[in-house]
């Protein structure tokens, strides 16, 4: 049997009614609507999840990359620049919490400015400040405020930039994007519950005769509700399974993350994060179960 045939048979088996669900007629437009809704919502949920996880990773990366580094900028007349650099390095060498400190050479300065000014920048002719890169000790952070005061007292042309003013808005922005992704997931779940409720109500209304017969032979509300709930839960699960698979395929097909591409090329799953979308079909089934059960019990209250 072909792979496609096997999948079709598996999905057919999952959505085939058993037990109480057999009392509900097998087909109808609501069946397709439920499967389609669950599939579409699961597809969107995969992207919302990818967005959320990617922004989380980005926030961590920015946070980590910027948190352990700082820069001292030395602006001084050319004759004093070297002496001031030595003085700064001496101060940094004795400052607790600093793992390494080194002055950037001309090539590194050119590399840092290249994205803005191009490769042929005559760096020697420009009055650029000297930059000293600081790597913070992972065990203990250095006292940025104390270092700033000490530099101001001993090397007036040196300014410490600990990247806080860059880092905070970036991390905040990434956190907001993550929150938006989570909100989108919540809205997708609510929209799916609403649509499945409507489909379940339509199915209940269309199966009035079935409900009357079941009532006549002594079926309780829970039995009748169960018959519809099983049907809709399995449809929700199957639809979400297909939607999730398509969504994961689409995310996998996105361009791979690279440093130059920045955020957009990093939109995807990494490592164990690929397991997260697998939670979507069971969650969709739970949403379908709750939505259908509530719709069914509410409607059955009106029928004796």
């Amino acid at each position: 049997m072909s792979g496609g045939g096997r999948i079709r048979r598996l999905l057919g088996g999952l959505s085939r009614p058993q037990g109480a669900a057999r009392v509900v007629p097998p087909s109808g437009s609501t069946a397709h609507l439920t499967v389609l809704t669950a599939g579409a919502m699961a597809f969107l949920a995969v992207f919302a999840l990818a967005l959320s996880l990617a922004s989380g990773r980005l926030a961590d990366r920015w946070s980590e990359a910027l948190a352990r580094t700082a820069t001292v900028r030395i602006s001084a007349p050319e004759a004093q620049l070297e002496a001031q650099t030595r003085a700064v390095l001496a101060i940094l060498d004795t400052t607790p919490g600093i793992e390494t400190a080194r002055a950037l050479d001309a090539a590194e300065m050119r590399g840092a400015l290249e994205p803005w000014f191009g490769p042929d920048l005559p760096i020697e002719t420009l009055p650029l400040p000297q930059l000293v890169e600081i790597i913070e000790s992972p065990e203990r952070p250095f006292d940025a405020e104390g270092l700033r005061l000490r530099l101001a007292a001993e090397v007036p042309g040196a300014v410490l930039d600990d990247h806080t003013r860059w880092r905070r808005p970036l991390v905040e922005a990434a956190g907001r994007i993550r929150l938006l992704g989570l909100m989108a997931l919540g809205l997708i779940g609510a929209a799916m519950a609403g649509l499945i409720t409507l489909a379940a109500q339509a199915a209940l209304a269309a199966n009035g005769q079935v409900i009357r017969v079941l009532r006549l032979v002594g079926a309780r509300d829970t039995f009748i509700a169960r018959a519809f709930v099983r049907r809709f839960t399995s449809r929700g699960f199957v639809g979400a399974l297909v939607g999730t698979a398509c969504g994961m395929g689409a995310v996998a097909a996105l361009p791979a993350a690279d440093a130059a591409g920045g955020f957009l090329t990093g939109l995807g799953f990494a490592g164990l994060h690929w397991l997260w979308p697998l939670a979507i079909p069971p969650l969709a089934a739970i949403v379908a179960y709750i939505a259908t059960r509530q719709a069914a019990l509410r409607m059955l209250k009106g029928i004796r």
Binding site: V217, R220, R304
Partner: peptide, 14 residues
Amino acid sequence: SRDDIAALRSRIGV
């Protein structure tokens, strides 16, 4: 109750 009436249908055939 509604469940009582459902149970009653086992004693009354219609």
